[in-house]
């Protein structure tokens, strides 16, 4: 039974009378656990909230997670492997989000490995989805082997996720090298996750500027370390749905930048919590900025 109804006709399609061509963006990092899947779920949700038609593809075969982050794990019937092995139509395998009808997921197979899908097949899937969606976000597995090659196969843009840690930055540099070698990738942007302003202030952590300078890449987002991300993952609800959350706002800003808006970067240093105000008061008393 198809779980995803035929996507709503997009406006551009109606007005111009031609098929739309969506942007395929791969979200990658090299290193595992830096926040690719979190970024995927949040940017996807934010873009859908902004009225874009979005489909997310989980290419992390055997280690699927994107469904959990979106709270869709119980709705998956078919996976990407079922599509390439022709057990179902592509559209049948697209799972619609609970809240947002603009958002769909093509899940990874949990019981298969990276060899179950080829680069060519992923490319074809992306081509097919481009006709119906504004954005196709591809969640890439860790590593630089076949899983990575598959994930980037259909993409023309990339977001490289990293954290301000040496090993993550080094792996990001490796990935950037591989992306630059691929003609199909027209642009890539850097997303710095798990930034901790306190550690940066005390010079215990590389700053945003340090990482940007070392990798010499364009920045598309700075996401603070936020325990809210853990609770939101537990609930299966991306943090962009929580307007008060700083990480949520930061991800929303990334989505707006992707759409082409010029959004200034959040000032993570500014602490608007009660504690922050107390802090300001005390440091004011002592006559210095903490």
């Amino acid at each position: 039974m198809p779980l995803c109804i035929e996507p709503v006709q997009s406006q551009s399609k109606e007005i111009k009378g031609e098929t739309m061509s969506g942007r395929v963006i791969v979200i990658t990092s090299g290193k595992g656990g830096v926040g690719k899947t979190t970024t995927n779920a949040n940017i996807g949700t934010a873009l859908a909230r902004a009225g874009k038609k979005v489909v997310m593809i989980d290419t992390d075969l055997g280690l699927r997670n994107l469904d959990l982050l979106l709270g869709l794990e119980n709705r998956i019937v078919y996976t990407i492997v079922d599509v390439v092995e022709e057990r179902c139509k592509l559209k049948q395998a697209l799972v619609k989000d609970k809240k947002n009808p603009n958002l769909c997921l093509l899940a990874a197979a949990q019981t298969r490995d990276k060899t179950a899908v080829t680069e060519e097949q992923l490319k074809n899937i992306c081509e097919e989805l481009k006709k119906d969606f504004d954005f196709i976000l591809v969640d890439c597995p860790a590593g630089i082997e076949q899983g990575f090659q598959n994930a980037v196969a259909g993409a023309s843009e990339a977001i490289v996720v990293t954290t301000p840690e040496m090993s993550a930055v080094r792996d990001a540099d490796r990935i950037i090298g591989l992306l630059e070698a691929r003609e199909e990738i027209k642009s890539y942007k850097l997303l710095l996750n798990r930034v901790r302003p306190n550690l940066i202030k005390s010079n215990d952590m590389m700053s945003v500027d340090d990482v940007v300078e070392i990798l010499s890449a364009d920045l598309i987002g700075i996401i603070p370390e936020d325990t809210g991300i853990i609770t939101s993952t537990n609930k299966g609800e991306p943090i962009v749905n929580d307007e008060k959350s700083l990480a949520g706002q930061a991800y929303n800003n990334v989505a707006r930048r992707i759409i082409g808006e010029d959004v200034p970067f959040l000032n993570l240093e500014e602490d608007n919590s009660v504690l922050g105000k107390v802090k300001k008061f005390f440091s004011g008393l002592m006559g210095k900025e903490k």
Binding site: R170, N203, D204, D210, I214
Partner: peptide, 18 residues
């Protein structure tokens, strides 16, 4: 500080990687 050490070590390592 830790940050400068990290930056310097990274620059050397990346130069070798690249």
């Amino acid at each position: 500080n830790a940050k400068d050490v990290a930056c310097n070590r990274l620059r050397v390592v990346l130069m070798q990687d690249r």
